[in-house]
Amino acid sequence: MSAFTAVLRRDLTLAFRQGTDTVTVVAFFAIVAVLFAFGVGPEPNVQARIAAGVVWTTALLAVLLSLDRLFSQDFDDGALDQLIVGTDALIVVCAKTLAHWLATAVPLLIMAPLVAMALQIPASGIAPLMLSLLLGTPTLSLLGAVGAALVLGARRGGVLLGVLLLPLYIPILIFGTAAVDAGLLDVATATPLKILGGFLLLALALCPWAAAAGLKHALE
């Protein structure tokens, strides 16, 4: 367990000392949302209708953008080898994924209500949006860890990562926005949220092992 906390603390320290990474991801998130606002025009009804989808899609892209830093920096400078030699690959994966979620998704969660309100989302949509993001973003990080581990050492890894991961992200996007739509229509939001929770549990059970296998193969 101490290895887990050590890796977690190391990654969080690095993330906050190089604060620009986190800021860049949040700025990307806000700017793409603004692009959508200009793209569809200032009509409040139209914006309110698409707000949840825009927030979810942009959050997903922002997470994707931040993923190539998850392992690749440590892979390039050799730190990843040292970490794996010192402890189990599974522990490294879990700690680094948690650190990625804390350093990337949590700032997005803080920004999300602001962006959603700027896109004229009705007040009844905010709570389901935040809950769905809270349940959905850890799954994005976990799936992302698998993808990031698999493309280590690949040519054009960044583009490839999008091709590999976005199909797997589609179900999370569907149920994330379904939760918000249910909130806006004032019907039960529990079902899509429960499905998102189910995805999270499934990802927790499977993704760390797949990512660890990918890391081991990359470092062989």
Binding site: G153, A154, R155, L164, H217
Partner: peptide, 16 residues
């Protein structure tokens, strides 16, 4: 299909 062709080291691509 894309992942299999992305590595210079064929063995690495196979496992990924």
């Amino acid at each position: 299909i894309a992942l299999g062709d992305a590595f210079d080291d064929q063995e690495r691509g196979d496992k990924a």
